[in-house]
Nucleic acid binder design. Structure first.
Lengths: 415, 415
DNA sequence: AGTATTTTTTCGAGGCTCGAAAAAATAGGG
DNA sequence: CCCTATTTTTTCGAGCCTCGAAAAAATACT
């Protein structure tokens, strides 16, 4: 059962709250932090003094503060970039990328590689990931004191504890415990996240006005993925990363999906499905492994030009997405939607049928008011989400730890 | 944003924790509470001493403790039944019921009435509810010191703040703010909950081994409802009670649903849909207002006897439920399911097609391992859920209040 | 009756937050 | 240039809260 609050938890939580307030606000003064957290000035003063002493926060240079107000000028607090570093690793189809991010959230180094993920063996895949991480960590050019956390995102299903990839369309391999492997290899805490969930995390960070407590991020790509935030929390399944919107059933017994089942939303709206329909192939035709972005752009161009099979393919995609969203809205109620990925550039071809379909569902009451936004490049979002996840872990678990391992041990003190 | 933890919160939360530990365990000793909450004996001693002084808890009579152990015998703490009372009101099709429950959770009085909810005006409906509550509260025979909370459950959609009924199949009226109305009328805090959500709350209470952190309660009745618990929390929509499983889309453009749309799960699995299919009426035939339980039992009997349209009707219901669950499992992963309601008695007719359908969906990997349980009488569950909800509110908001309205004002102190 | 054992209470220590007051740092006005 | 008003930040004592250790209470066993 949930456990009582010990006295030590109090300081721990308030420390975490101050750190998170600084991360969100950028350069808040102590007074601003007191206002947003509801804690007293004395408490904020004490906590931030501790955090500065420990090298986690720094006071921003007074030069920048252009306060035209009377009185003692506010002194902004900011995250000390040198307090820690994190790694964001993104593994997607035929592509592996890693970025080193300092504690303030700035990318300080990166590396990208093309692979052939579909044909690689289990060990090759693991070795590539370990190697790219090792190169970044051990790079002598890089003045990074210590990497405190690795976050790895992958297209596919991960387990709910963020330890392992369970299944992924980018490789025939299954059940690879990447988080455990990286932890063993480098002795650095690691997590394994779903790519679409990381998209959602990043969208919330980028535009908290639009993407606040409830929203949906849908990846329109070769497959269809979703990241879902409900009540301010990232939604995950009971055993896996969950939110497999692309594999909700659109038409029982319908078109053949890449997952081997029939009638999934993805089997109508994934790139391979649009391509299959545009070529007027059978719904039973085996999904192709990959369709290039260029080819998809060509399909979209033809669909915009003439009312042929290409336009019909996009219409079917919109219909599947619309009925899928309708069923989703029946469960969670309507929420703002972000359409992410290269195919989001063809959202103009998808939207009419999508809205028409939603209007026939439980979401229908508000079908006009549901707002869609598009973002054609998913990779930066995923990486940003990973970085945020990893940094937030450092904020809460390392710099505001529980009883065990009271921090401040080997960290360099600043000034 | 989330607010810092003040010092006063600490005691408040730990008080709430002790109360909730007593409610769950029945008659735990102080030592047991210390063990489950992780707080020290001293703290538990101090808090429980307060709670006893305030008349919220009592020490159980030593006579019952048959401890064959050496040492000072444990003295069990229990909820003082006289500390407060709550009202559970359940409004369903043509039926209104209310129960008075003491603080220990025992029903001390009840009243039930048959109504004609489908034809009643808005004011008649409200007046009936107010009147039945008034009769129970003002009953001179009843020695109830003070009703601290009213919880009202209704079949249909409520808002996410638990204030109002937004839409219900039992009445053509919409948007009735029952919670506000009852609060104004009696000056007692009230909430308005969805019936299926209350079923889920009660199932979790009754069988915490089976229904712990993640499970699904589905009401098989004239309509199809769902209560969903995920990660130990009751799931609700962003604006409404949410979880409208019955109105997920099974077949786009398919059978006519009671909600006016087409192809909803309910349009295949609701009583009216089974009845319609069993009579081999068109899928476009207007849903009938009500089918008696007796008639449904007759349908089920005939379905078991011969392989005719009745059996096919149940098969279609199972198929719709199965594909619906499959889509749900794509989002949340598989979880134990409770089938509740009179039609759960016909689950034997539904299950084969249901399992076959699930096997064709994302839930398919585990289709064999998904476990179903049935419970044919929903009303006691709903009432129990209401009572638990109301009592839990009293536990947390009244007996462990924040700064404002520090409790213990007019309550009778016990010995 | 005395001893061992277990539960519960008591008591002082240590932490944490809070409010009030003091200190610090600046702009504006004469 | 100095003084005052204003705003931010720190300091300090008070009040709670939880904790651990020890004491007290209540029973079974010998």
């Amino acid at each position: 059962m949930s456990v009582g609050i010990r006295h030590d938890d109090l300081r721990r939580r308030n420390r975490a709250m101050v750190i998170s307030a600084v991360r969100r606000a950028g350069q808040p003064s102590r007074t601003e932090i007191a206002a947003t957290t509801g804690l007293s000035h004395s408490t904020i003063s004490a906590i931030s003094s501790d955090l500065i002493q420990e090298g986690i926060l720094t006071e921003s240079k007074a030069s920048e503060t252009v306060s035209m107000k009377r009185g003692r000028p506010q002194v902004g607090l900011c995250l000390n970039p040198e307090a820690a570093a994190v790694l964001a690793v993104v593994l997607s189809l035929n592509f592996l990328s890693v970025a080193v991010i300092d504690y303030a959230g700035h990318v300080v180094a990166e590396e990208q590689r093309r692979l052939d993920t579909l044909t690689m063996s289990r060990d090759e895949l693991i070795d590539e990931c370990v190697a790219i991480v090792r190169r970044r960590i051990e790079d002598p050019d890089l003045d990074v004191q210590s990497v405190a956390r690795i976050a790895l995102a992958i297209q596919g299903i991960t387990d709910s504890h963020a330890r392992a990839m369970l299944w992924s369309p980018i490789t025939p391999q299954t059940n690879i415990a990447f988080a455990d492997i990286l932890e063993r290899e480098f002795g650095i805490p690691a997590i394994m996240e779903n790519d679409c969930n990381m998209m959602a995390v990043a969208l919330r960070w980028r535009d908290p006005d639009r993407y606040r407590d409830d929203f949906i991020a849908i990846l329109l790509s070769h497959g269809i993925g979703m990241g879902l935030v409900l009540k301010g929390e990232l939604f995950t399944g009971t055993h896996s990363s969950g939110g497999e919107f692309g594999h909700m059933i659109h038409r029982p017994g319908g078109a053949l999906c890449r997952c081997g089942r029939r009638g999934c939303v993805e089997a109508y709206a994934g790139n391979y499905a649009i391509w299959r329909n545009a070529r007027q192939l059978s719904e039973n035709a085996e999904p192709v492994a990959d369709v290039s972005d260029a080819e998809m752009r060509a399909l979209a161009a033809r669909a915009r030009q003439t009312d042929g099979p290409e336009r019909e393919a996009y219409r079917k995609a919109g219909e599947a997405l619309g009925f899928g969203l309708g069923s989703l809205f029946a469960l969670i109620d309507p929420a703002p939607v972000a359409m992410v990925g290269a195919s989001a550039a063809a959202f103009d071809l998808i939207e009419p049928a999508l809205r028409e379909a939603i209007a026939q569902t439980a979401g229908g009451q508000h079908s006009g008011s549901i707002s869609f936004d598009t973002e054609t490049n998913e990779l930066p979002l995923i990486r940003e989400g990973c970085a945020l996840r990893a940094l937030s872990f450092v904020d809460q678990e390392i710099f505001a730890p529980g009883i065990q391992g009271k921090s401040g041990m080997n960290r360099k003190h600043v000034a």
